[in-house]
């Protein structure tokens, strides 16, 4: 009798716990969904969001999808970009220098956990960049980013973008003579 009651109580407690953890999980799930945009993002979506969303003010995607040991290779940077804070600082210098700066991914090509994304970036030059005082000029350049994922997070990237085109459009270097 006593044993049965205990068992009943235990079962009730277990049920309560299950219900509680289900509620907690669904709240966590909702929160995750809200930051992710989709509950089960595939590799292409992860990379697209990492490229496009920080420029819309959503820095959460970097925390969520970048591996802490991230290394970014960008020939325009003297040193590799390292970690979550490194990537945020790299983006910040362009966000500070270009009003309305944004990136649009045009196409993506993927094989296993390696994704190539071709993109364009635009903005109006209203702050100092690479020692160039604001010109007020509109700039549009293109680039290709190759991203390597590990366990659903980007661990390494190689970026090639038209640094030369940016400086030509800003008037910092002359347009090369055409053949």
């Amino acid at each position: 009798m006593f044993r049965r009651r205990t068992r009943g109580r235990t079962r009730k407690a277990a049920l309560l716990l299950t219900g509680l953890s289900a509620a907690v999980l669904s709240v966590v799930g909702l929160r995750r969904r809200r930051t992710k945009g989709s509950p089960m993002a595939d590799s292409k979506t992860i990379v697209r969001q990492l490229l496009e969303d920080p420029w819309k003010g959503n820095w959460g995607v970097i925390d969520e999808y970048l591996a802490p040991g991230y290394i970014g290779h960008d020939p325009s940077q003297p040193q590799p970009i390292r970690g979550i804070d490194g990537l945020k600082a790299n983006f910040q210098q362009y966000i500070d220098a270009f009003t309305g700066a944004h990136i649009t991914v045009i196409e993506q090509i993927a094989e296993d956990d390696v994704i190539a994304s071709r993109w364009t970036a635009s903005g109006t030059h209203t702050g100092e960049i690479a020692g160039i005082a604001p010109t007020g000029k509109d700039v549009t350049i293109s680039g290709i980013t190759i991203s390597k994922l590990e366990g659903g997070r980007v661990i390494e990237e190689w970026v090639n973008w038209d640094t030369f085109g940016m400086l030509v459009q800003l008037g910092a270097i002359p347009m090369p003579a055409t053949a």
């Binding site: 020939p75 325009s76 190539a116 071709r118 293109s142 290709i144 190689w158 090639n160 640094t163 030369f164």
Partner: peptide, 24 residues
């Protein structure tokens, strides 16, 4: 550092997109 994107049709390249670091 170069990155090429090529589209191949019937064993031949029909489209080519190059990104090279011209500044460096």
């Amino acid at each position: 550092q170069f990155v090429d994107i090529m589209r191949v049709r019937n064993g031949r390249i029909v489209e080519h997109w190059l990104s090279m670091d011209q500044l460096s």
